[in-house]
Design a protein around this nucleic acid. Structure first.
Length: 136
DNA sequence: GCCAACGTTGGC
DNA sequence: GCCAACGTTGGC
């Protein structure tokens, strides 16, 4: 079964949707949190993930697809953490703002709303559907 | 720039 | 194995 996710990035300092569009395929490394690692390890090929800008923007920019499942993150010297590869899938015409998400009642259970610090989060199918509609 | 919330570390 | 201290994240 296909799963849905949300991955966060800091567009200013780290990696932006613009960078993603330019590069198309990118290794999602640098995750150093056990809850996030667990989510990375649950990802399957062809799962989809929202691409979220934290910081100034605070919005979902588009969708990426998982094209390679969890493998050891070479940037982690301890060897404990993993990464996946993602590929640009779809750009939202209307990036969905955190503010909008918070204003939709059915979305107020989202991890993004309740635990905004988790950098790799699961998304419920119903939540996925609503946000896709908002972003078109 | 502040601060609340959270995760991780390390001493016991 | 607990918990205080610390560092980091991210929304405001």
């Amino acid at each position: 079964m296909k799963n849905f996710w949300l991955i966060k990035t800091e567009p200013e300092n780290d990696w932006s949707w613009n960078d993603q569009l330019k590069k198309n395929i990118e290794g999602w490394d640098g995750v150093r949190n056990f809850a996030a690692r667990k989510n990375l390890q649950s990802m399957k090929i062809n799962d989809q993930a929202f691409f979220y800008h934290s910081g100034k923007d605070k919005c979902i920019m588009g969708i990426v697809k998982i094209i390679k499942e969890a493998y050891p993150d070479p940037s982690d010297k301890s060897g404990k953490f993993v990464m996946v590869d993602v590929k640009t899938y779809k750009s939202f015409k209307n990036p969905v703002l955190l503010k909008e998400i918070k204003s939709v009642k059915k979305l107020n259970k989202m991890v993004l709303v309740n635990n905004s610090r988790l950098s790799v989060q699961p998304v419920m199918p119903i939540e996925w559907k609503i946000i896709c509609k908002l972003g078109i």
